[in-house]
């Protein structure tokens, strides 16, 4: 039962990955100019022909895709081309990927921690002043785009107060504080919007759970409010929250383009942007492929995690 479900999900997700990457490779065929011409602006026709052959563009859409895929699964994500040479996408990802990963992790941790505290609290105080204040403040913040928050943070905290550096990324090896110093502002700008949406999700589910009979039962047995909230109500209410958080992972890794540009964090999102503006379509295809794999993998993880947290969902999903 579990195994078949697993296989079924896996095949669905593989189809998604296939469609995303194949779609990308079709985009390459749609460009009105020959890709070799784009990659080698001042090259002779012979050089271009050689490159076309090397990339596999002479094999037609399907032949090209097969060649790309066979290299992709072996970890060869293609090259970025410039006039004098080329650079492997993988060698750039080695640098960019950890940056995005940390950024995404910290953002999720901050957003979830804040959202759980605020969500549980406002569900507990539903309709009271605390609930209203939290809801309204978060509502306003969720409507201000993250980049606007980032720009203002740079001006106030970076330039005026000089508390935090405004640019660049530092790895752990440069010192823990150095590392975090460079992460605070990007993480804040990314998480403000998430905190609002996560809090809303958790609050709504908590309110529903708190109305269930077993909670009334527990209360009548004289259990403390704190115990009821955290032990009995929070776990079943957090499913939507964690599902939605997991689904955001892929997007945070590849989609934090604007924030990465503003703070010069230069993670995967910036790589995607650079590939697009530099018209490095082969690199773009590999990057989008990787991001979609991330999305899919987290999808699977959340599926099973949710099943673990709340066995009812698993059965419901299987029977769907």
């Amino acid at each position: 039962m579990r195994a078949t479900y697993f296989l079924q999900r896996l095949s669905q997700l593989l189809i998604v990955i296939f469609c995303v990457t194949f779609g990308c490779s079709l985009l390459l065929q749609l460009i009105p100019v020959s890709p070799a011409e784009i990659l080698l602006p001042v090259g002779s026709p012979e050089e271009r022909a050689l490159l076309t052959k090397e990339i596999g563009l002479d094999r037609g859409p399907i032949g090209y895709y097969v060649k790309w895929l066979s290299e992709f699964v072996r970890g060869d994500f293609g090259d970025i081309y410039y006039s004098g040479g080329r650079e492997a996408v993988s060698s750039r990802l080695v640098v960019a990927f950890p940056r995005s990963l940390w950024l995404m992790l910290y953002t999720q941790i901050v957003a979830l921690a804040a959202a759980i505290a605020l969500g549980v609290w406002s569900a507990y105080r539903v309709g009271r002043r605390a609930d209203k204040v939290i809801s309204n403040v978060l509502f306003v913040f969720s409507s201000i785009p993250g980049f606007a928050i980032a720009l203002v943070l740079v001006l106030i905290i970076g330039v005026r107060l000089q508390w935090l550096p405004t640019l660049d990324y530092q790895p752990y090896s440069a010192g823990v504080w150095e590392h975090f110093k460079h992460m605070i502002m990007p993480v804040l700008s990314l998480s403000v919007g998430l905190i609002a949406s996560y809090t809303r999700l958790l609050r709504a589910d908590m309110i529903a759970t708190l109305r269930e009979d077993y909670i009334t039962m527990a209360a009548s047995k004289g259990l403390s409010d704190r115990r009821i909230l955290w032990r009995h109500a929070f776990r079943p209410s957090s499913v939507t929250l964690f599902t939605s958080a997991a689904l955001n992972m892929g997007g945070l890794i590849g989609g934090a383009i604007v924030i990465e540009t503003i703070f010069a964090t230069y993670g995967v999102g910036f790589e995607v942007f650079a590939a697009i503006s530099g018209r490095q379509y082969i690199a773009l295809q590999s990057l989008v492929g990787l991001i979609s794999i991330f999305y899919v993998v987290f999808n699977v993880i959340v599926d099973f995690a949710v099943g673990f947290v709340d066995p009812r969902t698993r059965d419901r999903r299987v029977n769907k």
Binding site: V154, L155, G158, V159, Q162, L164, P165, T166, L167, D168, T261, I262, A264
Partner: peptide, 19 residues
């Protein structure tokens, strides 16, 4: 050497001592 195409990034960078 850090490549910062946006003027604002270089200005805020040097003012905030990042550069």
């Amino acid at each position: 050497f850090t490549f910062l195409v946006e003027t604002a990034s270089r200005v805020s960078g040097i003012k905030s001592k990042s550069l």
